[in-house]
Amino acid sequence: MTFESPRVQVAFQRAAHARSGRAAIRVSAPAVGFVTLGDRDANLGSNGVEDIDLQIQSLIALSLAGDGAAYARLLALLAPRLRAYFSRRLPDPADAEDLVQETLIAIHTKRATYDSRLAFAPWVYGIARYKLIDHFRRRGVRRHVPLEAAGVLLAVSDTEAGATRADLHRLLAKLPARQRGLLEDVRLRGLTIAEAAARYGYTEGAAKVALHRTMKSLSASVAIDED
C-alpha cells in the first residue's frame, strides 16, 4: 500500500505494525470497521486497508475485462466507503446517499478515464471529492474540501444505507441508454428484472445473476460486519 504523502505512509505503516488489535489502529489512523467480502478475507485482521487496496485493484482489472460479478463486488465494496466519506462531511444522510449514487454512476460512466497503469484508489477518491465539491457548488456554499491521501476512502466504511432524496431522473439521465431503460422499467414501471433485461437485449441470466450476486455479496458483508 503506497500513499502519496510520505508522512501518511509512515503513519499507515506504524498503524499496520502496531497489530495490537483494532483499537490501536483506531488511535493511530482512521481505520475502523472493514467491510469484508467472502471467505478469502476472513483472516484479514488489522491488515484490512492494505488488503482492500489490493482487492479493489484486482477487481477493477477483472471488471474492465468484462467480469460482471467482479464489477458488482467492486461497487459493493466501494459504496459503504463512499457512504462513510460523504456522511462524515455532510450533515444530512440523504444528501450523502445521493452523492454515493452519483459517485457510483460517475465511476461507471467515466471508467474510460481510469488509466490502468495507475492506482485505482486515487482515481475513485478524485471522483468522490469532485462530486462533494460539486454538491457544495450547486448549493451555493463556498467550502474548502481539503485534498487528502486516497487512503481515507478505503480506511472507513459505513454499511448503513440511508434514504435518498435524489431526483431520480437527474441521476438516471447520466446512465447509458440501455441501462437507463432497464432500470426505469424495473424500478418505475414494475417489470421484473428478467422482462426488462430481455427488452434491452441483455440475457435474462446476466441481469438476474448480477442482481443475485450483488445481493449475496452485500448480505455477506453485512453479516461479517455485524460480528
Binding site: L64, Q101, T113, D115, S116, A161, T164, P176, R178, A206
Partner: peptide, 21 residues
C-alpha cells in the same frame, strides 16, 4: 432507488472502453 439496486444495474455492463479510446 436503493443503492444496491443501482449497483446491480451498473454491473450489467462491466466491460468498459479502454483508456486509449
Amino acid at each position: 432507488m436503493k443503492t444496491d439496486d443501482l449497483i446491480a444495474v451498473l454491473a450489467l455492463e462491466s466491460r468498459g472502453p479502454g483508456p486509449g479510446r
